[in-house]
Design a protein around this nucleic acid. Structure first.
Length: 592
DNA sequence: ACCGACACTTAGTACACTTTTT
DNA sequence: AAAAAGTGTACTAAGTGTCGGT
């Protein structure tokens, strides 16, 4: 009987183990990044969602809030009033003082006016929006001063909308949608010197919207009494909703969150391409160095541009339509005026000075010594040209990328940025991390490695408005901690002296506890100092962009595992969700 | 070769929310 | 409890790169 029972237990155990193994296999199969990949451009088989959330309808302002033209009160039509409120809300911003902004705004505003209004309102300078502006300021104050319950209510409502519209089903998985809210109307704010700043960004209606979902899904309902522009079933694209925006005429999309399978896989693929570049980058470098000597101008230009893209992590630099956007450039679109050549500069030979506005009108300024051949080539390219002529007149991104494609499957200019960013992180981590350091110091090292990449990629930010002040605060904290440490040391000394005389248990214990206190304070001081260094070095540098878009997350995960750093210290919750695939797959010995 | 349409990634900022300090 | 500081997220502009037509 007993034996049988034992057998029974064994059997049960066995079944349990088998069950667990099967479940694990199912889990592995189900694990999104292990799933079978589609071929020939198919992105999904099933897609169902609830459509977009539209911007709330315009709420007219109360009649006691007045608008004045030329000092006289004027009641605006709802259409004109709405556009006026957009301007009023930006009154404190320096945009509204800019000529182009005002001109564009006024032109578009007049289009929304009734003919009577248009006849009357002919000069923006005579418009007085201050009451409107005050009203909105008061509104936002009131919102801040709301009671806990009211705030809670709003939060719950937001949560409800998120639950209803913020998710979709794509191929057996419920996925988070990135931007399910339609962009509200307002005044366009470009970055930098944008020729279209101040133009009216139209309100998007259901009849502007294209819905994309699978045929066998429940098609989202348009709001009562409205129709979608189109419902299509295109599984070769990843977007759920699209519309055409009226400023540039470009298409906007609603797509999935970075945590989704479809984005995660693409991200992984991107880093795998960069790793393939690692294997052949020596060959490619040797090749472009050869090409500097080519007898063909176009090949020399291609080779010098590629050298910049590789060495300086410049962007490709597509052509842009003149007058449609801010005047910014990348590598292939550099103009003569953007570089200066110094045969000798501060003891270095063949120095090139770059000074241009890149993406988002962020200034790129750099002085770099280059090889003699590059320098001579640049002199050649600049011969007989005006400052606003193209530096690489025989080159564009399409020519460059076609060439790259021949050197390696899937290679384009942007892969170099990914490759150089990731390899730099890996190298810097190796160089900067030392075994003896404690965790905060190791994290400082990580941030420094991250920073090296951000500098390479020129990821800048406006120094935070409160930077100086918060730096001062931190410094005074450090000073206070130093005093505290001195005190603690003094106390320890006297406790030691005391213990020497008394030689009893109690005084010995006192020494021990004082020792501990000193140690603790030392640690705290160290942490503060590390923090101060980190912050100072970070003043104008944004780490987030490279962390999110250029650094193979497996490098960071491996580093965490190697040094026993919890991954939460490096990635916050959102980042961990985005990089779930990497956290899942990277081991301590992962090499990019 | 060139162009426009399209799809998708990369980017900085404003502000909401959370945590720490006073 | 209020204020200040710090962090995270939403937002949406601005890039890159491909494709199909001419």
């Amino acid at each position: 009987c007993c034996q049988i029972r034992q057998l029974d237990v064994l059997l049960l155990d066995c079944i349990f183990v088998i069950f667990t193994v099967i479940m694990e296999m199912i889990y592995l199969l189900d694990s999104r990044w292990e799933e079978e990949r589609y071929t020939d451009g198919v992105k999904w088989k099933f897609l169902e969602h609830k459509g977009p959330v539209f911007a709330p309808a315009y709420e007219p302002i109360p009649s006691h809030v007045k608008f004045y033209y030329d000092g006289k009160h004027m009641k605006l039509s709802p259409e004109a009033e709405e556009v006026a409120t957009f301007f009023a809300k930006m009154l404190d911003h320096e945009y509204t003082t800019k000529d182009i902004f005002r001109k564009n705004f006024f032109k578009d505003w007049r289009k929304e006016m009734t003919s009577e209004e248009r006849a009357k309102i002919t000069d923006l300078k005579k418009c007085d929006f201050t009451e409107m502006s005050e009203y909105f300021k008061a509104q936002s104050e009131a919102r801040k001063a709301m009671s806990k319950e009211e705030k809670q209510k709003i939060k719950e409502e937001n949560e409800r909308i998120l639950q209803q519209y913020g998710f979709c089903i794509m191929d057996n998985h419920k996925e988070r949608i990135a931007n399910f809210r339609i962009e509200p109307p307002g005044l366009f704010r470009g970055r930098g010197d944008h020729p279209k700043m101040g133009m009216l960004k139209r309100r998007i209606r259901p009849q502007d919207i294209i819905i994309n979902c699978s045929k066998d899904s429940k098609v989202p309902e348009p709001p009562p009494g409205t129709k979608w522009k189109e419902v299509r079933h295109d599984n070769k694209v990843t977007w759920l909703v699209s519309w055409t925006e009226n400023i540039q005429g470009s298409i906007k999309y609603i797509m999935l969150n970075p945590s989704s399978r479809i984005k995660g896989e693409k991200d992984w693929q991107k880093y795998e391409t960069a790793r393939r570049l690692k294997k052949c980058v020596d060959r490619i470098r040797a090749q472009y160095r050869e090409d500097w000597k080519s007898k063909e101008m176009r090949i020399r230009q291609r080779a010098v541009a590629l050298y910049f893209i590789d060495k300086l992590a410049l962007r490709a630099g597509n052509e842009k339509e003149e007058g449609e956007t801010a005047d910014t450039v990348g590598c292939c679109s550099l103009r003569v005026e953007h570089i200066k050549l110094y045969p000798e500069n501060e003891g270095q030979e063949y120095v090139v000075e770059f000074d241009f506005l890149g993406k988002d009108s962020i200034r790129y300024y750099n002085r770099v010594p280059v090889e003699k051949r590059v320098f001579k080539n640049l002199q050649l390219f600049m011969e007989n040209k005006e400052p606003d002529d193209d530096l690489f007149d025989r080159l564009n991104t399409s020519i460059l990328n076609k060439h790259l494609q021949e050197l390696m499957d899937g290679l384009t200019a942007k892969v170099f940025r990914t490759y150089n960013a990731s390899i730099t992180l890996q190298q810097q981590l190796k160089e900067l991390t030392t075994a003896e350091e404690n965790i905060p110091a190791k994290i400082l090292s990580y941030n420094r490695a991250n920073r090296a990449v951000a500098i390479l990629c020129n990821h800048q930010r406006a120094p935070p408005k409160t930077f100086e002040k918060s730096m001062q605060n931190l410094q005074s904290k450090i000073d206070a901690k130093r005093d505290q440490l001195a005190d603690a040391k003094r106390e320890l000394k006297s406790a030691k002296a005391d213990a020497k005389v008394r030689k009893d248990e109690k005084s010995k214990k006192a020494v021990e506890s004082k020792k501990k206190a000193v140690q603790r304070i030392e640690e705290q001081l160290m942490k503060l100092e590390v923090q101060a260094t980190d912050r100072e070095e970070n003043k104008q540098i944004a780490l987030g962009t490279s962390k999110l878009n250029y650094l193979d997350p497996r490098i960071s995960v491996a580093w965490c595992k190697k040094w026993g750093i919890p991954v939460e210290k490096i990635y916050n919750k959102t980042q961990r969700e985005k990089f779930a695939w990497a956290i899942d797959m990277a081991e301590e010995d992962y090499e990019f």
